[in-house]
């Protein structure tokens, strides 16, 4: 019984990891497939599908577009989220609750609905589909996240430090730029990278708001519809590698800032 009690958690942990990693590992393996079939049995290893992916203009263009939209919309969402979090955390208003509710509301609505609403609105106003339109939609879906992350970090402890700076004669802008922003730096970066990774992989809004310039998920989608090939597996693995690099950067920065503060 005690042996069971001791080992059961680790057995569960291992099984859960297997479940979580299974599709990813199979995907990576079959990106090195040699034949035409993207599915088992495995007949590789071969790098020919990787070479095809890197030479495929549609994929590399989609990759660039995705990165542009992801980084751009994440930047806007982080700046807007920070300004709102600061203002709402530092000054009480009669309507504070309502403002918070409004800012968080998009998180309770499906991306599909947000995308369709934007498409209808853009149609009505005669605005075309473009990377800008996708970016606008992605700011909408990421704003609640950046706002919530940053708002949660603007507690009393930070407010006291800001008050000290005011008492020492610093102006509003100086306090924000020289005290608040540096204090929140790890959270700002985390918010930015989370927004960027969610945006660059987002499908439905990008699909509805794009025509000629498409992002990578939309490219992958059309590849999927025109037939399966190991090229898809290689593309998916590439996306995974880039996302992991972003996660690695965030983790490293958070780790370093924790070490500084500890």
């Amino acid at each position: 019984m005690t042996a069971l009690y001791r080992w059961a958690p680790w057995v569960y942990f291992a099984a859960a990891l297997l479940f979580i990693f299974l599709p990813v590992l199979v995907l990576i393996q079959f990106s090195f497939q040699s034949g035409l079939a993207p599915v088992p049995p495995f007949d590789g290893p071969s790098l020919k599908w990787w070479a095809k992916v890197l030479a495929n203009r549609k994929i590399t263009d989609g990759l660039t577009n995705s990165l542009l939209v992801g980084l751009g919309s994440a930047f806007v969402a982080t700046v807007l989220g920070f300004l709102a979090a600061y203002s709402l955390a530092r000054k009480r208003r009669r309507l504070s609750g309502f403002y918070q509710f409004l800012l968080m509301a998009p998180i309770t609505v499906s991306y599909l609905i947000i995308g369709m609403g934007l498409q209808i609105t853009f149609n009505y106003l005669g605005l075309g589909k473009s990377l800008w339109a996708i970016g606008i939609g992605h700011v909408v879906i990421n704003l609640p996240l950046t706002f919530a992350i940053l708002y949660s970090q603007l507690g009393e402890h930070q407010a006291n430090i800001e008050r000290a700076a005011y008492d020492l004669g610093a102006g509003d802008w100086r306090v924000v730029l020289e005290i608040t922003v540096p204090m929140l730096w790890p959270s700002l970066l985390a918010a930015f990278f989370i927004a960027a990774t969610l945006s660059w992989d987002e499908f439905v809004i990008a699909f509805l708001m794009s025509r000629f310039d498409v992002t990578l998920p939309v490219v992958i989608w059309s590849m999927l519809r025109s037939g399966l090939s190991p090229e898809l597996n290689a593309t998916g693995t590439l996306v995974f590698i880039i996302s992991i690099l972003a996660v690695g950067v965030v983790e490293f920065l958070l780790w370093r800032s924790r070490k500084h503060h500890a």
Partner: peptide, 26 residues
């Protein structure tokens, strides 16, 4: 580590289950 595959492409993650579940799949 546990949530690492969270960051794979959403479209590709769905599709990769097809590989796992296929008749020759693991």
């Amino acid at each position: 580590l546990t949530v690492l595959p969270f960051w794979t492409s959403y479209v590709v993650r769905s599709y990769s289950w097809l590989l796992v579940l296929s008749e020759n799949g693991i």
